[in-house]
Amino acid sequence: MSFAFYLISALTVAGGLAAVLLRNIVHCVLALTVAFAGLALLFLQLDAQFAGFAQILIYIGAVAILVIFAILLTRDPQVSQGKGMFSRTWVTGLLIAAAVFAVMGWAVLASAPALPNETSTPSVTVLQIGDALMSRYILPLEILALLLTAAIIGAVIVAMHEKVRSK
């Protein structure tokens, strides 16, 4: 448990908290990117270089930007109507989340003695990941490719103007 771990996880959790608590949606997204960056750093701490960089590339470079586009294409209801930013059933939601956290925290802490403590650092190169993707995990990879293609087409069709379709 190094100092860096505490620092990065504090940053990540703070980013996550800000992302769900802030009033301005664009600020929420910026806080979300802080959380994403913190998670990428945690991945790097766990010696998962490839996953960490993929995290930055995909989440900060693509998903955050996508969310921003969606925000700018829609209007924020709490700005337009001056209502609160939480839904009517926020107490229930908060209780459920707290219960989930209690259960998970209890499970993690209760199983702490059984968890492996220290292992040798795995030296996994990108080459090995590529090999695994192309041999053992080829079927998931192909299915994923299909899924992403379907997602692209679906997203375009869903978001397209209906006027264009009826032409």
């Binding site: 910026l30 990117t33 990428a40 270089q49 490839f50 960089f53 993929a54 930055i56 590339l57 900060i60 470079g61 693509a62 955050a64 930007i65 921003i68 190169t125 990108v126 080459l127």
Partner: peptide, 21 residues
């Protein structure tokens, strides 16, 4: 590092966010 090309693009992707900000 092993994944330096990916690192370069990850950093390049972060500039988009700065531009938007």
């Amino acid at each position: 590092m092993d994944a330096s090309l990916l690192f370069f693009f990850a950093m390049g992707a972060s500039t988009e966010l700065a531009v938007f900000m």
